[in-house]
Nucleic acid binder design. Sequence first.
DNA 1: AATACCTCATAACAGTTGTTATGTAAACTA
DNA 2: TAGTTTACATAACAACTGTTATGAGGTATT
Lengths: 192, 192
Amino acid sequence: MSQQDRRIEVSEAAWRVIVREGLDRTSIRAIARELDCTTGVVTHYFRDKQELILFALNQVTENLKQAMQKVAEKPLSIERLVEMLCTFSPLDIKRQEILKVWVAFLGYAVGRESLMVEHQTSAGQLREVIMQELVALQSAKIIREDIDTGMEANVLLALVNGIALDSLIQKQRLNPQQQKIVIRRYINGISI
Amino acid sequence: MSQQDRRIEVSEAAWRVIVREGLDRTSIRAIARELDCTTGVVTHYFRDKQELILFALNQVTENLKQAMQKVAEKPLSIERLVEMLCTFSPLDIKRQEILKVWVAFLGYAVGRESLMVEHQTSAGQLREVIMQELVALQSAKIIREDIDTGMEANVLLALVNGIALDSLIQKQRLNPQQQKIVIRRYINGISI
DNA sequence: AATACCTCATAACAGTTGTTATGTAAACTA
DNA sequence: TAGTTTACATAACAACTGTTATGAGGTATT
């Protein structure tokens, strides 16, 4: 097993602790316990805790980007955009956990400007992908010519992020089917 | 000054520390420093830290509810719904700080089921208000009859929450004017 | 005027934290 | 096979945490 793979293992153990016990209780010792090892493992693969946190956060982004990449292989269509956006929706347990980890990190970034910039960087990348998708759809005359692709990318991401949050904070939440319907309906609104 | 007022003072000091340094660094000692007092003040007005956290979180909800209450005094109209929803938008510094505190608490609630339930309770109340607004507008034949007010309340809150998050995580973010336009445009889509 | 209470300061407590140094087998390298 | 690096385990460190007890000075009550 390569060093990089082992780092990912440690990072995933950190994820599990975060989801189960909360980010502030995710100590180096707790991660080691989750790995059924001692703290020596963690300190061996990460210089300090900040490096571990940053790595784990980047793993979240990496997961999302890969999922979107996979969808991007399909032929251009409205449906492809819908599926791309649904990448963010907590439709299965894996994505629910990613969402929780992401929310925990975002809350942790409040009052830590450098961490918030990390979030902004990854969010900016996702915005870029959606925007390019909109531009392509616009060129193909599938969506209206008069929409501002930059702004619309923000709105679409805001909508899917909001829907994702809804699944966390609402007891009477949108079910997976409704989530898809809402996104599809919104996109229909900007289609020709 | 009443006991309740003093509790609010402590809570607001906690807010400032959270926004400036992060929730996990908001220790009782840090709050006391912010108040320019000793920890005696904090421990006198709150049994323990959990009670303080819960109080500070409820203050966030209280702030939002009061702002919405104020809007609710105006006559029923599409514009009133827009303004209600804009209550959540970080249009000024005060609301930006409330948003940050809220996000910090939400992240803190990951892995703490009881705290997450608190979030769900307050989010549920806000959903109820928006839903009643939709029902009233529907009765007044201002918005379409065929929309599901329950689901639409979720979507509207998801949209404004998403827009609020956008202001935190996007560098190329929606400006306040665009935020209002987006909300208004969406509501026009469900109007007659 | 005596008593009780409210408001806060101070200090000590044990527990947890990240960090660091040191030890030790196993695996690789020469 | 001797030497070096890798992959951990172990332990000690100071700093910080929430909690609690004690006390002191002011204010209100009787």
